[in-house]
Computed example of a mutant assay.
Amino acid sequence: MEINTAFTLGIIFSTYGFLFCIFAYYLSSRFLKLKVEEVHVFSAFGKFLYSYSLKSGVKINFGYIPLNYGLKFHLEDFAIDSSEEKRYFRNLAKNIFLLQMITMVLIIAVISIVSLALGYNPVTVFRDLVESFYDLISGKQSFSEFKAMVNSQYVMYGKYFYLFFAVMTYFVFVSFLLALAPFSVFTNILVMFLILGSYFVLGLKYFELPISFYIDLLISLTVSGFLYFLSLRFFIK
């Protein structure tokens, strides 16, 4: 994968995160009645690299680990193990589940509309992608065979559309996992390991990507993510 592919993937990831922040913020605050305290662009252990607050009191944070975008909700204070606390967190888990499921449906709709607008059947593209990827991870085909398949898909559908389709399909998978995460601590930890593990397993074991690819991807994620971080003040009120 050359530099253009790394930059394209970085921009797709950042654009998705930026749009997800806006969509999740308004869906949570307007319809799910969840109070958003902070919007996170990238992760951080401890203090964020840079933060600013909006007039509404919402804090926008920029981290130094370009892995994810997310929201931090206001949590009410209750007596420990009280019935009110349990009811509140059940409702919070249900609303987060709804947020992720709506996000998943929206992504599927976007994929389908873009595919149909370009004259491609999204079901056919999805089936070919999943079957080929399953054959790769199950050992039924080698990486060189999988790479040849991807190149043939580039020719058939166009490289950038296929990258878009593949990445958005991955986001559907992630949204489904995140919808399950809030229901228990164990599920949440398992989901995080699955998501983070997929980055390393896919990138290092199967795709055998060179270090230069990760450097280019990191640059693209960081630059585009920071620009989106600065522009959030104009979209979240």
Results as ranks from 00 to 15, higher is better:
Phe186Cys: 06
Phe186Glu: 13
Phe186Ile: 15
Phe186Arg: 15
Thr187Ile: 09
Thr187Cys: 06
Thr187Val: 06
Thr187Met: 14
Thr187His: 06
Asn188Val: 00
Asn188Met: 08
Asn188Gly: 05
Ile189Ala: 02
Ile189Leu: 05
Ile189Gln: 07
Ile189Trp: 05
Leu190Thr: 12
Leu190Lys: 02
Leu190Asn: 01
Leu190Trp: 04
Val191Ile: 01
Val191Thr: 05
Val191Asn: 02
Val191Asp: 00
Val191His: 01
Phe193Leu: 11
Leu194His: 01
Leu194Arg: 03
Leu194Pro: 03
Ile195Lys: 02
Leu196Pro: 03
Leu196Phe: 10
Leu196Cys: 04
Gly197Val: 04
Gly197Met: 05
Ser198Lys: 06
Ser198Pro: 00
Ser198Thr: 12
Ser198Tyr: 08
Tyr199Lys: 09
Tyr199Cys: 05
Tyr199Gln: 15
Tyr199Arg: 07
Phe200His: 10
Phe200Pro: 02
Phe200Gln: 12
Phe200Asp: 14
Val201Phe: 12
Val201Asp: 07
Val201Ser: 10
Leu202Asn: 14
Leu202Ala: 12
Leu202Phe: 11
Gly203Met: 05
Leu204Trp: 09
Leu204Pro: 00
Lys205Trp: 15
Lys205Asp: 05
Lys205Arg: 13
Lys205Phe: 15
Tyr206Asp: 07
Tyr206Arg: 11
Tyr206Val: 07
Tyr206Glu: 08
Phe207Glu: 14
Phe207His: 11
Phe207Pro: 02
Glu208Gln: 15
Glu208Lys: 14
Glu208Thr: 12
Leu209Ile: 12
Leu209Pro: 08
Leu209Phe: 13
Leu209Asn: 12
Leu209Met: 15
Pro210Trp: 08
Pro210Leu: 09
Pro210Gln: 13
Pro210His: 11
Ile211Asn: 10
Ile211Gln: 09
Ile211Val: 15
Ile211Asp: 07
Ser212Tyr: 10
Ser212Gly: 02
Ser212Thr: 15
Ser212Ile: 13
Phe213Ile: 10
Phe213Thr: 11
Tyr214Gly: 04
Tyr214Arg: 10
Tyr214Ser: 12
Ile215Lys: 12
Ile215Asp: 08
Ile215Glu: 09
Asp216Gln: 12
Asp216Tyr: 15
Asp216Pro: 03
Asp216Cys: 11
Leu217Pro: 03
Leu217Arg: 04
Leu217Trp: 04
Leu218Ser: 15
Ile219Pro: 00
Ser220Asp: 03
Ser220Lys: 01
Ser220Gln: 03
Leu221Phe: 01
Leu221Ser: 02
Leu221Pro: 00
Thr222Arg: 05
Val223Cys: 06
Val223Ser: 04
Ser224Arg: 10
Gly225Lys: 06
Gly225Met: 01
Gly225Ser: 07
Gly225Asp: 05
Gly225Ala: 03
Phe226Ile: 08
Phe226Asp: 06
Phe226Gln: 05
Phe226Ala: 09
Leu227Trp: 06
Leu227Lys: 11
Leu227Asp: 05
Leu227His: 09
Leu227Val: 14
Leu227Thr: 08
Leu227Ala: 11
Leu227Met: 13
Tyr228Glu: 02
Tyr228Gln: 03
Tyr228Asp: 00
Tyr228Gly: 12
Tyr228Thr: 00
Tyr228Val: 00
